[in-house]
């Protein structure tokens, strides 16, 4: 079964999951780790554990309305995850501001990893954290989906349900703010 389905694109998997719901778990196997890392980088691993579970539950429940012309479900899943991350917006910004202020990232880490040395952040990282905290949620969503997750403009538009033009303008604004604190040494 797995051998056979390994070749299927996401849209086909989702279609098959209408009659065979367990097929949806293959989508989890494809994307759960990257969704988790994305959420963990924004709001910490513990919150990310919940967000991964909720993202795939929500996606599973909405699978009937998935547009099969999008063969890759990755943007769709990132869109759901981003919406869930938004519930933690205040915490996200609080932690970024704390990092900017103290140089220590308060992003909660799993207990087992406390031995990992927490090197104090450099000035640039602190400034960047401050800049990220000052972005509007929509601008930050676009910036991080492009910079971290390497979604294309079209994929970000699909994920967030906004026009591509809005993706461009949000990204432009977010980069301008980031550049303002980082200096001009990187022309994209």
């Amino acid at each position: 079964m797995t051998v056979e389905t390994a070749e299927l694109d996401d849209a086909e998997l989702i279609r098959r999951s209408a009659d065979d719901p367990e097929q949806f778990a293959l989508l989890f196997d494809r994307y759960a780790r990257q969704i988790h890392l994305y959420a963990a980088r924004r709001i910490g691993t513990q919150a990310a554990d919940d967000i991964v579970a909720e993202t795939f539950l929500a996606a599973f429940r909405r699978r009937g309305s998935y547009d099969p012309s999008y063969r890759l479900a990755r943007p769709w899943l990132y869109g759901i995850a981003t919406t869930l991350v938004a519930r933690h917006r205040r915490q996200e910004e609080r932690m970024l501001r704390a990092l900017a202020r103290t140089g220590v990232d308060p992003l909660p880490e799993p207990v087992a990893d406390v031995v990992v040395d927490r090197v104090a952040a450099g000035d640039r990282e602190r400034e960047l954290a401050g800049a990220l905290a000052s972005l509007s949620r929509g601008d930050r969503d676009v910036l991080l989906l492009v910079a971290w997750e390497e979604l294309s403009y079209e994929e970000v538009a699909q994920a967030l349900g906004i026009p591509v033009g809005t993706v461009r303008s949000r990204l432009h604004r977010a980069r301008r703010k980031a550049r303002a604190v980082l200096g001009d040494e990187e022309p994209e």
Binding site: F28, R41, V52, F60, P110, A112, L144
Partner: peptide, 24 residues
């Protein structure tokens, strides 16, 4: 600089992955 920001975030643990997959 943005790409590198929090790049060392630990990956999903096996326990968390199993729990989430189990819920699904």
């Amino acid at each position: 600089a943005i790409k590198d920001f929090r790049r060392d975030t630990p990956p999903m643990t096996a326990a968390a992955g199993n729990a989430a997959r189990g819920r699904l």
